[in-house]
């Protein structure tokens, strides 16, 4: 039997499906994958499997979130807060280094209007911070690592929206308007960090087996 893409399987498992359902769900997908691979070829079957993974993901994650009680939400919030704190600690060292180099060359952020360079710097820091937060969340959470990273992606994306809305209309013109990319950059990179952790873990599992 041709094995379905392990990374896609791992993504589905990481969204928090109950173990007894996850086994049946992955079994169904594996059965249909084998049928499609025999009739349509391995490439078409793989494409179908990945499409089915992205279509099913939101249903499974929503079901996981619905089933969380107060205790479950408290646990998820704890994981996300710990991951965020870990990201701050990790990011502070290289960021401090970059800032000291900038200061050494006389580049000092001031109260002036944001330039394209400063906005790009903020976006980069946001992307790296988001990716680290997502990765750490997926690392700390055992049952639903990717679902937890997805919630953190929504939360972290909401912060810049609040800040930018509060500073309107100055954030609507010139390079400052580029800051509206921040919520998308942070959310997508957080999700990407979570995905990276989950799929890398699957490769490690495959090597161990």
């Amino acid at each position: 039997m041709i094995a379905p893409p392990r990374a896609a399987e791992r993504i589905l498992e990481a969204l928090g499906a109950r173990s007894e359902f996850a086994d049946a769900l992955l079994g169904d997908l594996a059965e249909e994958y084998a049928e499609r691979a025999a009739h349509e070829g391995a490439r078409a079957a793989r494409r179908w499997y990945w499409a089915e993974t992205w279509r099913s993901g939101p249903h499974i994650a929503r079901n996981w979130a619905r089933g969380l009680g107060l205790r479950g939400w408290r646990h998820a919030a704890g994981v996300m807060a710990s991951a965020y704190a870990l990201m701050l600690v990790t990011l502070m060292v290289p960021l401090g280094l970059v800032m000291s180099i900038m200061y050494a060359y006389g580049v000092r952020p001031g109260p002036h209007a944001p330039s394209i360079a400063s906005v790009s710097f903020v976006l980069t820091v946001g992307a790296v911070g988001g990716a680290l937060s997502g990765y750490y969340t997926a690392w700390l959470e055992r049952r639903a690592p990717l679902a937890c990273a997805a919630i953190l992606a929504i939360v972290l994306g909401a912060f810049p929206i609040v800040a930018l809305t509060a500073n309107m209309p100055s954030t609507l013109h010139g390079p400052a308007a580029l800051q509206w990319l921040q919520p998308f950059v942070v959310s997508l990179s957080t999700l990407a960090g979570g995905l990276l952790r989950v799929t890398r873990h699957s490769e490690a599992l495959a090597r161990d087996c």
């Binding site: 589905l12 769900l25 099913s56 249903h59």
Partner: peptide, 10 residues
């Protein structure tokens, strides 16, 4: 999708 069916079955 398989996810929609299984979450409903659950």
């Amino acid at each position: 999708s398989v996810g929609a069916v299984y979450t409903t079955l659950q």
